[in-house]
Design a protein around this nucleic acid. Structure first.
Lengths: 247, 247
DNA sequence: TCAATTCGTCTATTGATATAGACAACTATA
DNA sequence: TATAGTTGTCTATATCAATAGACGAATTGA
């Protein structure tokens, strides 16, 4: 394998070289190749390693500076800014803020939007409702230390959970909002994890660079009697979060 | 929100529009928007929906035809070739071929490569070995119905599992290879799921289009006495697989 | 058979991407 | 205070990506 091919750069693929390089550098940082606050190799060295022109590397670095991952200082070098990836636990008892307790100083949830609508087939199936039954759709996002972590769309049975959006907005917590509706405890029944490119709405909400990846977790929560109470699709910024599956 | 922005197309991002559109169409197929063997809307309609020129849509379709996802017929339309996303279970007893029994006719594992090496820190920690202890690294990939599904790098304690690579090559099964080394049963102790762009090696092995996403599952298997026997990093083609977390 | 629909191909133009080279501006250090 | 090493900026050129319009080729159904 030639030195050039080994770098993973592909041409004529619809993905610009500067973006491929930016992705590799970001990934290298996540893997700890440069250390916290460490210095990147000089642009000329990176250009040689990736087999491209120095200007192309500069494009990649500019994008990562824009993202807040790198900081370039004229005459000195280019340095790593980014923090470590958060590890988000997925288990039978999954609670957003508890799981991140040790990893972030400040955790917050936001209610972005909510609306009544008729249940789509997959929502109706998950919640055990008839097709087109009235459901509440709630859009939330969560932050840790001021960085957006995830964005979720949740559906609730409108008949049982009328007003839960307001309760989430007031308390900032789904767990507390459940209490107000007589649900003392709840469990995660199932979780399906997949990954895709972030769409425009999530890019904006999570403050991601276009082309970024989101981890998608589709989950069903049930109450202590096993009745489904929530169906949700959560998108996590893949370069900030990993999912720890407890078994 | 304008109709254009709602389509999720972003310009000046280093990702060509035709590739963004190809990714969205592929994703739409995975979500079942066109049905098995279904027909895509005409190119002119797609161009309008995505807010781009017809030629740009044609670029996206050409890429998906090349991938084997679509089939274009002059005068008739463009049709879906691809099968549904496989759902790969992750649980305490995770076995590759058993989990996919109902979803694919033919399942196969391949041994690609194996080598002795000194344990990296994360490998040593996971297997409970001293740093730089001798370990066996094994590269495998798996297919379902002739389509590459995943590619894995596994590490074993060299002292305990000498020759396991050959056993995997012969039997095509990790479970059977374990038997030969006196491990009658084993469990998954932990799994960490993340996502990233596929690197050049995985692109080739999984026959993916550049820019494609892989789901990364880092796992530790333990024997019935709780001793770690395997540390592995598996990369799944994100457009062909989803991970079903059992809880 | 005819018209409508749809994919396939061609030409032309514009802006983004990538390469190449040169030199300025800044930093650290011998 | 030189000097080497690094990032920042400029010009120029070639190729890719995207738009625009026109027309050919194959299929379908009236």
């Amino acid at each position: 394998m030639s030195a050039k091919a080994a770098t993973g750069m592909d041409r004529r693929t619809g993905v610009a070289l500067w973006r491929q390089i930016a992705d590799q550098i970001r990934q290298g940082i996540g893997a700890g190749h440069f250390g916290e606050g460490g210095r990147l190799p000089p642009e000329t060295a990176l250009a040689e390693r990736f087999g491209v022109n120095r200007h192309t590397v500069r494009g990649a670095i500019a994008a990562l500076v824009q993202e807040g991952v790198l900081r370039a200082e004229q005459g000195r070098g280019t340095f790593v800014e980014k923090r470590k990836r958060l590890s988000y636990p997925i288990a039978r008892r999954t609670r957003f803020s508890e799981g991140l307790r040790d990893q972030a100083q400040e955790r917050r949830g936001h209610l972005l939007d909510h609306a009544h609508e008729a249940a789509e087939p997959r929502v109706a199936a998950a919640l055990g409702l008839d097709a087109d039954a009235p459901v509440l759709r709630v859009e939330t996002m969560s932050e840790a230390d001021g960085r957006p972590v995830s964005r979720a769309t949740s559906w609730f049975d409108a008949a049982r959970f009328e007003g839960i959006a307001e309760a989430i907005a007031e308390t900032g917590s789904v767990t507390l909002a459940y209490r107000r509706h007589g649900v003392e405890d709840y469990f995660r029944q199932s979780t399906i994890v997949s990954a895709r490119h972030a769409d425009a709405v999530d890019l904006a909400a999570l403050r991601l660079a276009p082309g970024a990846i989101v981890l998608v977790a589709v989950a069903v929560n049930v109450d202590t009697e096993g009745r489904p109470i929530q169906f949700s699709e959560t998108r996590f910024a893949a370069d900030r979060v990993e999912l720890a599956v407890a078994e």
